[in-house]
Each structure stands twice: as C-alpha cells, then as structure tokens.
Write a protein that binds this DNA or RNA. Structure first.
Lengths: 342, 342
DNA sequence: CTGTTAGCGCCTTCAG
DNA sequence: CTGAAGGCGCTAACAG
C-alpha cells in the first residue's frame, strides 16, 4: 500500500494519469491525443500535451485496438532476409504506411512452421492487413485468413484470388524471351539452376517451365544433368556451377533463377578458366542493382525499375474501403534486360 | 437488422460465440483455450474445442493483451535485411520464443525515422521485450524505452547498460589481431573500407580504430586516400575497390568491414588484373558462410560458430523474471579466422 | 467546450 | 466443475 505512494509508478501511465495531472477529464485527453482537438481550447490542449510529455505517456495499443477494433498496423510477410528486391518492398510499404499513420511489422516466413506461427499471430489480430511476398507457398489456406477480416495482398503467381488481391509477375513470358535470345545466339547446352522449390514445384514453376518450353521451341532435348538446384544462395550458385563445369560436356549457357546466385555463377565459371560470355553465357532473374555494376554486367529478367508502391497502394485502398473490394489482380511489368553476360 | 441474421457474421467470433455454441460459460472456454483445463471435464473440453474449430475462433490479442498486461510477443529490431548473420539471429530468437509460447515480430530500423517509428510501436506496448541488433545507433534514448517496462537486450559495443542487457563483440581486439597478421607478413599499404557509419563514428568505430592503431603499432603512417566507405553493400565494395586499384600507389591489402563487400573486393581486385592474395590481401569481417566456399577462401574476423542463442536466452530470462535483473553484460567470442585471402 | 459513461473481448477471482 | 461479474485502458456517444 505504502509502496504505491512512495515508489515511482512501476506501471506505464494511462489516460487517467494524464487527465489528473492536466486537471481535465479522460475524454479531453483522448481528444487531444487523437488530434480531434477542434473542440478543445488551445490552453487546455497545451496543458494536456505538457502532461503527456512529463509522464512519457503513450496510448496503450492493446486497449486502443480493442476499442477501435483496428490496430492501425500492417504486416509484411516475407520469405527470407537477404534479397535486395525486398528492401524496396520494405521501403515502399513503410512509405505508404507512414502516409496513412500505420505501423509496419515484419514476419519472416521461410517454412511451414513459421507460416503456422504467422497465421496464429494474424488470426489473433496483430494487424489489420498484410502483404505476402515470396512466402505464400508456405501457407495452407490464405483464403481463410482473408475471411477473418484481414486485408490482404499476395504477391505470387500460383495463388488464386480468394478474398484478397493478387499481384503477378509475368515471369514465364519474360524468361522465355530471354532464353530465346540465348538460343537464337547459338547456345546449345543451356543449364538451369533453380531454387529448391522450383524443382519441387516442377511444372508449376514458371522459371523451370519457361526453360523447358524454350528448349523445345528450339528443337533441343532436355538433359537432366543440366538441371539442378543452386539459386537459393550465392554459395549454392558457386558450388552448382563448379560441378556443372566439371561435366564431360559442360554447358555453354547458364540460366540461374536468382541474380545473387547468377553472380556467383559468373565467378565460378571464371574460376574454372573460362570466359563469360564467350565460353559460357550467364542469365539471372531479379534485376539486382549489383548486376549492372559487375563486369561483365549481368543479363537478367525482372522489373526494369524495381517498384512496389502499387502493391502497397492496393493494401491501403483495401484498408480504407468501407466494403472490401472484390479480389483484384494486377500484373507487374517484367522484361528481359540484356547486358554483357549473354 | 435483418441483415445481421441472414448475413454470415462479419465480425470475428468471440469467447461468447464459442461458449454459446458449446453450451458452456465463457469462463469454461477461457480455461480450455488457455490449457487451464485440469478442472474441466474431458467431454466438456471436447465440445469446446469442436466449437473453436467450427467457428475458427482465435482469441483476440488486443483484448488478451489488455487483460493480461502482456502481449506474449517479442520484437527483433534489426538494422537491415540482407546480412546472413542476422538469419541466424532470427532463427535462434524464433526457437527460443517458440519454447516459451511467444510470437516474434521484426522491425526494420535503418534510419532515425524508422527508429522513431519503432520507438512509437514499442512504447505503445506492441511487444513485451525486444532484441536490438545492428540498430541501436539509430535510437536516441534506449534507457527510456527500458524504463517503459520493456525487456531489452541490445547487441552493440558502444551503448552503456541502462535498465537493459548489453551484448558485446570484441571487435577491436579481433580486428587488431588480424591486422597484425597482415602487417607482420609485410603488407605496407593497407586500405580500410568501412560502413558509412564507421566513418561517421570516427574514433568510436571499433573497426576503424583497430585499423588506425594497428598501423601505428607497426610504425606506419595513415594515408587518407586509403580510407573510405565501401562496406555497406557488395556494389559499393566493388566500386570502392576498383577506385582504390586505380590509385598511383594502390594498396597491397584491403581491410573491409563486411564479408559481403570483401567478397566483391576480391572480385574487383581480380578484374584489374591482380591476384589475391599475392598482389593484394583481402580481409573481411563477419564470418559469412560464403567466405569459406569461394576461391580464395576469405580470411575474416568474427564468431567461429555463429550463434545467438545466448542473446535470446538473456531476453527470455528477463521476461520470466519477477523482478527485472540488473543490467547484465556479456561478451560473444570473436576471433581472427585466417584463410586463403591474406 | 468539457465531463460522464458504456462497452470493446478477455481472464480470473469468487460463489454456487 | 461451472456461471456471474468486474475491470484492464481506451474511444465515442451523449450530456451538460
């Protein structure tokens, strides 16, 4: 009892504390804090703001979320750290969120276990909306989440809209164009280094399918030894390429499903004494900034100007809408970006 | 009115809905949901769980947080995406959180603006605890956050404990050892490529200071042209190295403050027709897995076995403790890891 | 212009 | 073993 009075408060200040200190009611504090102070006198407002500062008051987000039935937070669900494309997404989403007074939380989901984890948090209402990027494949039923009143935008090519918006990238077409270029230039042994999940997906992987179809278009048979994993990281790209170059009939072109690994691949090719692109052409995916700086500059496939502001806008439109808009679908512009490595 | 009855419920189910469907009281539902079901009959429990499944019920985290005055969530505040060391931290923190039934949110803070953003969320009680990694420098007063009843562990060398635990890495000593090795081997023009913030920090940057002190120990003067930015990304590492190699008197060794940039540096050196390590030695920092795979393998400085489980444990000890433990300080083992590039 | 007050959904004594 | 009730901190009617 006595402790209460003597000790500094161990619990964070509430509206009531602020109200008491400023000599006003809790409603007034709430109005001031929320910017609804058209009805509040200037002097009163100042007293409240001073009390807020003195006490270090910040409104409790649980209480506010409970009352308003919105958290004013959005969630970015991404598949992994380490890909610079995502940095742009982070930036664009933060920018859009700031405009609307929202906070951004990030959930890293690179396995079904993390997806379950994320699903639980999202269903518990940790945020009002979410953008899924490079992570949708780990989730079971995204539609169920959307039905739980979560505004959602999913960047993925193989998911079907179901109460949420879908953003697609025409990977298949752009990769096909790039591969045609390679094959038209006379390359005859083109290898494919995919992500592990490209190989698991098989026919449902746009990149792998684009590769197979391009070979077929040019009358070339598939050689199983030229298809494998290696796009998931720089290390794997280096290793897989080294192995490929040790083959009795090594490839004369490499289609690598990520720029990061493609850059390692260039390095690996050169470490076996060959030249890029003279001996071996290398083609990446993603249009990483780094690719345009290295020598030879990396030919790639992706957005010319990496920009996710449209994705962010979709989410905040959804959040602002009184009635949820129907499931929309947009397509980001992808193209073949030829440089020096092919 | 009629709509209410006809339309599927637009709002998420609550304990009351579950209780009504299962034919029990809300208290019973709460007991079952929270595993306090020693007092509940097995059949009753089954009915409740069935209702939970049918309705797709998940307890509202705002309401629960308000009532329990804890969110059972922790926050990872990291400085950027893209560094694989952080992947290990993410993994280790998730593992520890799962054990204790906590959720993990990630906040990306690579600027003071993002720090303000994060501070607001944290002060609003979005999580019970937080680990700061590679981000502390963007914050003004971490002590104030800790006083706001947030359990905190800060991984940073220049912050002083103030109601939170601090984890340090003996960078200065380990870098010094590595540089001594370089200089003892006869290198005379050693360049330093730092992060932008190393250069801003000046004397307070362990890596830059280690560099300057090592030169001094070996009786070498400082050459301003050999010190610059370039560690922040692969691209910058490549560019900065290329510039350095174009100098009238190019360096014979490069100390690069990140492994990622150091790897680019090796490449850039070779692209100017020189050999690593014969012409130019390259030393990185961080012990990135990739560094041990490339040829020549990258000499570096860091944790031999990258492991942050102790960091995570610190946080969860703090959360479990009734009374906050005093500010603790631990030191992670860092060492010089010589390989082929020096 | 400011104060009073009724919940938001949940957990947890306290009775029964 | 189960039900009723209070209150966590906040916002938004509604009074005054």
């Amino acid at each position: 009892m006595l402790k209460r009075i003597i000790m500094p408060k161990k619990t964070r200040p509430t509206v009531r504390d602020v109200a008491a200190l400023a000599g006003v009611s809790v409603a007034t504090v709430s109005y001031v804090v929320n910017g609804r102070d058209d009805r509040i006198g200037a002097d009163t407002r100042e007293r409240v703001l001073a009390a807020v500062r003195d006490l270090g008051y910040a409104p409790n987000s649980s209480a506010r979320g409970l009352r308003k039935r919105r958290t004013e937070r959005v969630c970015l669900v991404i598949g992994s750290l380490g890909s610079p494309v995502q940095e742009q997404l982070v930036r664009d989403l933060h920018a859009a969120a700031d405009d609307d007074g929202y906070g951004v939380l990030t959930l890293i989901v690179d396995s079904p276990a993390h997806a379950a984890h994320a699903t639980r948090l999202l269903r518990q209402g940790v945020a009002d909306g979410a953008v899924f990027f490079d992570s949708a494949r780990h989730f079971g039923d995204l539609g169920e989440l959307a039905r739980g009143r979560l505004a959602m935008v999913v960047v993925d090519n193989s998911v079907t809209p179901d109460g949420f918006d879908v953003v697609r990238t025409p990977e298949y077409e752009a990769c096909g164009e790039a591969l045609d270029h390679l094959l038209a230039a006379g390359r005859r042994r083109v290898a494919f280094l995919g992500h592990r999940h490209d190989l698991e997906l098989g026919d449902r992987s746009a990149r792998l399918t684009a590769y197979r179809d391009a070979l077929r278009r040019h009358g070339l048979g598939a050689d199983g030894r030229l298809v494998g994993a290696g796009a998931d990281s720089r290390v794997e790209g280096y290793r897989a390429t080294t192995a490929l170059m040790g083959l009795p009939e090594p490839p004369d072109a490499l289609f690598v499903a990520s720029d990061r690994a493609a850059i390692s691949a260039i390095w690996a090719v050169r470490d076996t004494g060959r030249t890029v692109p003279a001996d071996v052409a290398v083609l990446g995916v993603g249009n990483l900034a780094e690719g345009s700086v290295i020598r030879p500059a990396l030919s790639t496939v992706g957005q010319r100007q990496v920009d996710f502001s449209r994705v962010a806008r979709l989410l905040f439109e959804r959040l602002a809408a009184a009635d949820p808009p129907g499931s929309r679908e947009i397509v980001l512009p992808w193209s073949f970006i030829p440089r020096e490595s092919t």
